[in-house]
């Protein structure tokens, strides 16, 4: 019902190529997250799929049918915008019913579907309010409600959580994941937050400057990043990357070790340095360690109760099986 295929899709704004020819297949029922730094073209890609931008060349197929030249409304997709884009002069009920009204459904059917969507999203008590009288999270739910009543082939989310505060964001993240479990509809979700990508996705598409850097499940990307960019982007805090003699010892140009794969040892160890910052999160402690001969401080994850503090000397040993090796082009070596 909701598979989407992109074939050599390209987007140019004037002379600048925002998205070089790109192939991508999204299976029915998948939760796909487009992730990348700002300006990487992830929102543009979403808007191309939605039909809000025209592709410069290439083809988009939805449900196996060509959709490249279809207007947005005919593609059977629903979108949740970053600003929610609720209609401020309409009540919540009218907002949710708007796509149904545009589709020409009768009032009774509209009401039935709105009530059902409101029940799913806990909005029943707010149906007669205006968007201006709702909190950020409630507005978000109204925007989702407006998209689910149409029973679309796929949902498109454009950074839907970036306007919410941290606590609400975690809550809405769960709600969207639950919604996906329940509806089993294809969802495409754009974010710059790799935590959202890791926690929600079945499949992550990492983008940089319009290029697809890697496609895979969250754990695949975590375990086997295809290149230095993905290695640095997925995982928090970032992977430690080292060049020079440390890399040469492993026959490569760059090695990468995640902070959680650095062991703290009593003596010896591959690296020895001084703690310049320690961040205590309670469950974990992150140390930023200055190591002589290295440009950037190394990040290390340690137990929350560890006794080390700012200024202490620390000995570190990477876990041998968790060292990622990259060649001079930044590509992963097996």
């Amino acid at each position: 019902m909701g598979n989407i295929t992109l074939e050599k899709v390209q987007k140019k704004f004037g002379e600048t190529e925002v998205i070089p020819p790109l192939d991508l297949a999204i299976e029915d029922g998948e939760f796909v997250v487009f992730v990348g730094p700002s300006g990487c073209g992830k929102s543009t890609l979403l808007r191309l799929i939605a039909g809000l931008e025209d592709v410069s060349s290439g083809e988009i197929r939805i449900d196996g049918k060509p959709a490249t030249d279809l207007p947005p409304a005919k593609r059977g997709l629903a979108m949740v915008f970053q600003s929610y884009a609720l209609y401020p002069h309409m009540s919540v009920r009218k907002n949710i019913a708007f796509p149904l009204k545009m589709a020409g459904l009768n009032a009774e059917e509209q009401n039935k579907r709105v009530e059902r969507a409101a029940a799913v999203l806990n909005l029943t008590d707010y149906l007669d309010r205006r968007p201006g009288q709702l909190s950020g999270g409630q507005r978000q739910r109204v925007a989702i409600g407006r998209s689910i009543v149409r029973e679309p082939a796929a949902f498109l989310f454009d950074e839907p959580l970036s306007n919410l505060d941290a606590a609400l964001r975690v809550g809405m993240r769960l709600e969207i994941t639950e919604l996906h479990e329940r509806l089993k509809t294809t969802m495409i979700y754009v974010t710059h937050d790799q935590v959202e990508a890791m926690t929600m996705a079945d499949k992550i598409v990492v983008l940089r400057a319009g290029h697809v850097e890697q496609v895979g499940s969250p754990l695949e990307l975590y375990r086997n990043p295809r290149n230095l960019f993905v290695a640095g982007f997925i995982g928090s805090p970032k992977m430690n990357l080292m060049t020079g003699e440390h890399a040469a010892r492993h026959d490569c140009t760059t090695i990468g070790v995640r902070p959680e794969h650095m062991r703290i040892v009593e003596e010896g160890g591959t690296f020895t340095g001084r703690i310049i910052v320690s961040e205590h999160l309670g469950s974990d402690t992150f140390f930023h360690v200055e190591i002589p001969g290295m440009d950037e401080p190394m990040t290390v994850r340690a137990d929350g109760e560890i006794g080390l503090r700012h200024g202490d000397t620390i000995h570190l040993e990477p876990e041998a099986r968790q060292i990622h090796r990259f060649d001079e082009k930044g590509l992963r070596l097996a």
Partner: peptide, 17 residues
């Protein structure tokens, strides 16, 4: 807000609507 118009477009609203 242009996103409101885009949302309406996605919702199937014609230019007149």
């Amino acid at each position: 807000d242009s996103e409101q118009l885009e949302a309406a477009e996605m919702d199937g609203a014609s230019a007149w609507s």
